[in-house]
Simulated scan of single mutants.
Amino acid sequence: MRFLGNIEARTDAKGRVFLPATFRKQLQVAGEEQLILRTDIHGKCLVLYPESAWNRRLDEISAKVSEWDEDEQMVLREFMAEAEMLTLDGNGRFLISKRLLQAAGIEQAVRFIGIKDTIEIWAAEKTEKPFLPQEEFASRLKAIMGKQQ
């Protein structure tokens, strides 16, 4: 499953938001009913994981974390503590908790951005400018694509 899109929406007074129809259709076709929402580890946004994508991430982390290493267990705890399980209601909406809204700096306007097998949710005003200036983006992409595997 690969999400693609850059769609603006609004939360209501309770913090509910409609998941864009294109993303809902993809989840439905894939049979994904459970979703996991957590803060992003790098930026001030939220990441919505279909359950299968979440389980893959969790398996990757768990395989590298020793249950005997306290520092590694703290990283796993932090990763898990930020996560909330959710489902869409009959109208295709889900509730973003106040805690997560605050962590991402979201007030009402949001932007959904499909990133590989997840969907990022940003405060819309944070996405008004490009994430990187065009020249810097081109330079960084060239460096990444030139790496040896």
Rank of each mutant, 00 (worst) to 15 (best):
F79W: 09
M80T: 10
E120T: 13
D59W: 02
Q148D: 11
K14G: 09
R93D: 10
I106A: 03
L48E: 04
L100D: 07
S139G: 13
Q134F: 13
E33I: 07
E82F: 00
S62L: 08
L4A: 12
A53D: 04
M74E: 11
P133M: 11
Q102Y: 03
W122G: 07
I121T: 01
S139C: 08
G15S: 09
A109K: 11
D40Y: 06
Q28F: 00
A109G: 09
K25C: 00
T87N: 12
I121V: 13
L46K: 03
Y49A: 03
I121E: 02
I119A: 03
N91G: 10
M145L: 15
W122R: 05
D59N: 08
L76S: 01
F23R: 01
Q73H: 02
G92W: 03
A143R: 14
T127Q: 12
H42C: 07
G92F: 06
E51H: 09
Q28E: 14
I144E: 15
L86A: 05
V47C: 07
G114I: 05
K129V: 08
I96S: 06
D40W: 06
W68T: 11
F79Q: 03
R93L: 07
V17Y: 05
E120R: 14
D59G: 03
K129A: 15
T118P: 00
E136Q: 15
E33K: 13
K14W: 04
K116S: 08
Q134Y: 12
L27G: 00
L76I: 02
L4V: 09
Q108Y: 15
K25Q: 12
A81E: 01
L100Q: 11
E60A: 14
V65H: 02
S97E: 09
L19T: 07
K142P: 00
I115Q: 07
